Deep mutational scan, measured.
Amino acid sequence: MFKRLMMVALLVIAPLSAATAADQTNPYKLMDEAAQKTFDRLKNEQPQIRANPDYLRTIVDQELLPYVQVKYAGALVLGQYYKSATPAQREAYFAAFREYLKQAYGQALAMYHGQTYQIAPEQPLGDKTIVPIRVTIIDPNGRPPVRLDFQWRKNSQTGNWQAYDMIAEGVSMITTKQNEWGTLLRTKGIDGLTAQLKSISQQKITLEEKK
């Protein structure tokens, strides 16, 4: 169930391209415009997507990853294993993690069937560096609404905000991946996880038929 919630949630996290980005210092504006741009692209490019579902990787690479804190999220997933990894191991892992996100997020976007969304009203940021933004996803086919909290983090150097995690039903996506990959990290280390991520990233994206 959580895996499905995570995939549905990713439908609204794909941010804007650099040329049309919203105010990078306001995570609420980023979330709002990102959702609108993403849904528009999914709707307008269905012919290309249906002809070649792996085209979704391109959308992810162009529109999402430049505005997601990939390395920060990847380091959180590694936890204690990050500090013990060599620079070469980290570089290989982050490259594999990025390719994994292209496949995983692309597969999530393949679930698009006309969903709509509501974003919580903007709250004062103050001096906060981590801000959760509640998004409610509404399914046109009558499924119950899904309420999610996207975690946005302020870059201490640039002042810009980027998304790095999502919490559904009190469970963090980062925590879920830590639990899912924990045994592999304990037995085969970061190299074993890197190899698995490379394998997963090679899987073809498949479209979910409308139910």
Rank of each mutant, 00 (worst) to 15 (best):
M1F: 00
M1W: 00
F2N: 01
F2V: 07
F2Q: 02
K3P: 01
K3Y: 06
K3I: 07
R4Y: 15
R4G: 03
R4S: 13
R4T: 15
L5P: 01
M6P: 00
M7S: 02
V8G: 03
V8S: 04
A9T: 06
L11M: 09
V12A: 06
V12I: 10
V12D: 00
V12Y: 10
I13C: 12
A14N: 13
P15K: 12
L16R: 02
L16D: 04
S17G: 11
S17L: 08
A18G: 13
A18C: 15
A19K: 03
T20L: 13
T20D: 10
A21V: 10
A21G: 12
A21D: 07
A22I: 12
D23E: 15
Q24I: 09
Q24T: 13
Q24D: 13
T25D: 09
N26W: 04
P27T: 06
Y28W: 08
Y28H: 07
L30K: 15
L30H: 04
M31S: 01
M31N: 04
M31W: 04
D32M: 10
D32F: 13
D32I: 10
E33P: 06
E33A: 10
A35Q: 06
A35V: 14
K37G: 10
K37E: 08
K37V: 10
T38Q: 08
T38W: 04
T38K: 05
F39L: 03
R41L: 03
R41I: 02
L42G: 06
K43T: 14
N44L: 15
N44M: 13
N44T: 13
E45G: 06
Q48E: 13
R50A: 08
A51Y: 07
N52K: 14
P53V: 08
P53D: 15
D54G: 09
Y55M: 12
Y55L: 10
Y55I: 10
L56P: 08
T58Y: 08
T58L: 07
T58G: 06
I59P: 04
I59S: 07
V60M: 11
V60E: 02
V60H: 05
D61K: 06
D61Q: 14
D61A: 10
Q62T: 08
Q62G: 13
E63P: 01
E63S: 08
P66T: 06
Y67K: 03
V68D: 01
V68T: 07
V68F: 06
V68N: 09
Q69G: 12
V70I: 07
K71D: 02
K71N: 06
A75S: 08
L76N: 02
L76D: 00
L76C: 04
V77H: 15
L78R: 02
G79V: 02
Q80F: 06
Y81M: 09
Y81K: 10
Y82A: 01
K83V: 06
K83A: 07
S84F: 10
S84N: 12
A85V: 07
A85E: 08
T86D: 10
P87K: 08
P87G: 11
P87I: 07
P87Y: 06
A88P: 14
Q89Y: 06
Q89I: 06
Q89M: 07
R90Q: 06
A92Y: 13
A92N: 14
F94Q: 05
F94C: 06
A95T: 12
A96P: 12
A96I: 15
F97L: 02
F97Y: 15
R98M: 10
R98A: 12
L101V: 12
Q103T: 13
Q103H: 11
Q103F: 07
A104C: 13
A104R: 01
Y105N: 03
G106K: 03
G106H: 03
G106F: 03
G106L: 03
A108G: 04
A108N: 06
A108F: 12
L109P: 05
H113N: 04
G114W: 06
G114P: 05
G114T: 08
T116M: 15
Y117W: 07
Y117R: 03
Q118R: 09
I119S: 15
I119T: 08
I119Q: 05
I119R: 08
P121D: 04
P121G: 12
P121K: 09
P121W: 09
P124N: 09
P124Q: 11
P124K: 12
P124S: 12
P124I: 12
P124H: 08
L125N: 13
L125T: 12
G126V: 10
G126I: 09
G126D: 13
T129R: 09
I130S: 01
P132L: 07
P132S: 04
I133C: 03
I133Y: 08
V135R: 03
V135E: 02
V135K: 04
T136P: 14
T136W: 11
I137W: 07
I137L: 13
I137F: 13
I137H: 11
I138D: 12
D139E: 15
D139T: 14
D139V: 13
P140V: 13
P140L: 14
P140Q: 15
N141E: 07
N141K: 07
G142M: 09
P145N: 04
P145D: 06
V146S: 02
V146L: 06
D149G: 06
D149Q: 03
W152R: 03
K154Y: 07
K154E: 03
N155R: 01
N155S: 02
S156Y: 03
S156D: 00
S156N: 03
Q157R: 07
G159W: 11
N160G: 12
W161E: 09
Q162E: 03
Y164V: 02
Y164S: 00
D165I: 00
D165Y: 02
D165H: 00
M166Y: 06
M166A: 00
M166E: 04
I167H: 11
I167E: 04
I167D: 00
I167V: 06
I167Y: 08
I167L: 05
I167A: 00
A168N: 08
E169A: 02
G170E: 03
G170K: 03
G170S: 01
S172H: 02
S172Q: 05
M173D: 00
M173C: 00
T175F: 07
T175E: 09
T176Y: 03
K177W: 12
Q178H: 02
Q178T: 07
Q178P: 11
N179A: 00
W181R: 15
G182W: 11
G182R: 14
T183Y: 06
R186E: 01
R186I: 01
T187H: 14
T187F: 02
K188Q: 07
G189N: 05
G189F: 03
G189V: 03
I190P: 06
I190N: 08
D191W: 10
L193V: 03
L193I: 02
T194R: 07
T194S: 07
A195Y: 12
A195L: 13
K198C: 08
S199K: 13
S199L: 12
S199H: 09
S199F: 13
S199I: 13
S199R: 11
Q202V: 08
I205L: 15
I205P: 08
I205W: 14
L207P: 13
L207Q: 15
E208G: 09
E208V: 08
E208A: 14
E208N: 10
K211F: 11
K211G: 12
K211M: 12
